[in-house]
């Protein structure tokens, strides 16, 4: 089998949330460059199972880049070295034969490690539950142009809504800040007519929950934007700041 690769993997292994954990080195032999990164890990895991060892635990679901479950910090970057893709969309041809690859879980106080490379990202869900919804009935599918929304606004709201909540922004940020995620979730509703009723309450409630969860503070490095698999832009953070400051200084809506 020519053209196959042999790699050295330094993988973070941790039994549970309370275990200290550490790196264990594995050899990944005879890896096809056409495999995805997760398929490569599947191959390694099969060999571990055959040897009677505990397979490497990592999150994954759709394996087509839309679910936001996969979450590996590869060689110092979330979702590996390529732009705008998730780990499942990363292929082994992005690495060279004989390379050593370091694989770590997302590192954040708000994302405790469940096991090995999988983290508990329920903090994101709690932020969503704090205000990332519309609590009025939106009815069935409306007729076209019944609710007028300018194309640019609809596009921008859609861009924000493409966030899959994987947490790469938190992982990439040197401050473990969740502001790109929170701002995308605030933006997608703040831009559309259906989101207006709770607009300012939402911004306050979601920011408060974000702080509660213990995420860090944005220093505008832009690392999140660069690493986001869905290319959510920093404009969202600026918009979140506007929503929040408008709510605090110019509106009278209180958080429930």
């Amino acid at each position: 089998m020519s053209g196959h690769m042999n790699l050295t993997l330094k993988v973070w292994r941790q039994k549970n949330e309370n275990d200290r954990g550490g790196f264990i080195t594995y050899k990944a032999t005879d890896i096809s460059p056409d495999m995805s990164f997760l398929e490569m890990l599947d191959v390694v895991n099969e060999s571990l199972v055959k040897r009677g060892e505990d397979p490497i635990y990592f999150d994954h679901d759709c394996r087509e880049g839309i679910c936001g479950m996969c979450s590996l910090y590869i060689n110092g970057r979330p979702h590996g070295p390529k732009r705008a893709i998730t780990t499942c969309q990363l292929h082994m041809r992005s690495f060279s034969d004989g390379e050593t690859i370091t694989i770590e879980p997302w590192r954040s106080a708000a994302f405790p490690v469940i096991k090995d490379l999988a983290t508990n990202r329920a903090a994101f869900e709690r932020i969503q539950q704090a205000g990332g919804f519309v609590s009025v009935g939106t009815g069935g599918v409306p007729d076209a142009n019944e609710i007028p929304i300018p194309k640019v606004i609809a596009d921008e709201a859609f861009n924000s809504a493409t966030c899959i909540g994987c947490g790469a922004c938190v992982a990439a940020c040197k401050n473990a800040s969740a502001m790109l995620f929170v701002s995308a979730k605030i933006s997608q509703l703040a831009l559309l007519p259906q989101g207006q009723q709770e607009r300012y309450q939402r911004a306050q409630a979601m920011v408060a929950q974000m702080d509660e969860e213990g995420f860090g503070n944005c220093t505008n490095t832009g690392a999140c934007e660069a690493e986001c698999p869905k290319e959510i832009s920093l404009t969202n953070i600026a918009r979140m700041n506007r929503e929040f400051f408008s709510a605090k200084f110019f509106k009278e809506e209180e958080i429930r």
């Binding site: 973070w12 770590e104 473990a176 860090g216 505008n220 832009g222």
Partner: peptide
Amino acid sequence: VLTMKNKKARPIGYAVTNGKANSPWTSR
């Protein structure tokens, strides 16, 4: 205060980081 909070937000750091791949030196 912000820096201390930021450090607290990531109590266990990464073994390998590659900041220059995604952000300017000044910002970090």
